[in-house]
């Protein structure tokens, strides 16, 4: 029984993980969304991150949430929670690690975007409405 509990704990510890990290340095707010999951034989999902609870210690067993839609949903939630109004420069890519060819595969989706705050958009609008300064003579 003890071994089973240890095994279950180990599986949960290395299982899928969903995270949203936000950096606010230098007046730029950048969000990095990551979701990863484990697959058996490249196809059967064992565990993947829970997009409903990023940065939490929960995962979804035997279902695959590792896709673009989950990452975009987490990004949307980050936009709402940070008080941003939109995002720019959204980029996505995937990485994967394999154990013994196709026996075990860890797939991760990464999405990054710069969040645009309400204040920034107001400043941009102000800049757009201001007449251009005359060129230097």
């Amino acid at each position: 029984m003890k071994n089973i509990i240890l095994l279950a704990a180990a599986v949960l510890a290395v299982s899928g993980c969903a995270s949203v990290d936000i950096s606010r340095e230098g007046g730029h707010t950048v969000a990095v969304v990551e979701n990863s999951g484990w697959y058996l034989f490249n196809a059967i999902p064992i565990a993947s991150g829970d997009p409903g609870n990023p940065n939490g210690r929960t995962c979804r067993l035997f279902s695959s949430t590792v896709n673009l839609e989950s990452n975009i949903a987490m990004l949307d939630r980050a936009i709402c929670e940070t008080g941003a109004v939109s995002c720019i420069d959204t980029v996505s890519y995937t990485t994967d690690e394999k154990v013994f060819a196709i026996l075990l595969r860890r797939l991760s989706y990464h999405t990054t975007a710069e969040l645009v705050m309400e204040q920034e958009t107001a400043e941009q609008k102000e800049e757009e409405t201001q007449p251009c300064s005359s060129p230097l003579m």
Partner: peptide
């Protein structure tokens, strides 16, 4: 996937 905040598709 659609980004709700911007209305753009990614």
């Amino acid at each position: 996937a659609r980004i709700q905040a911007t209305g753009e598709y990614h």
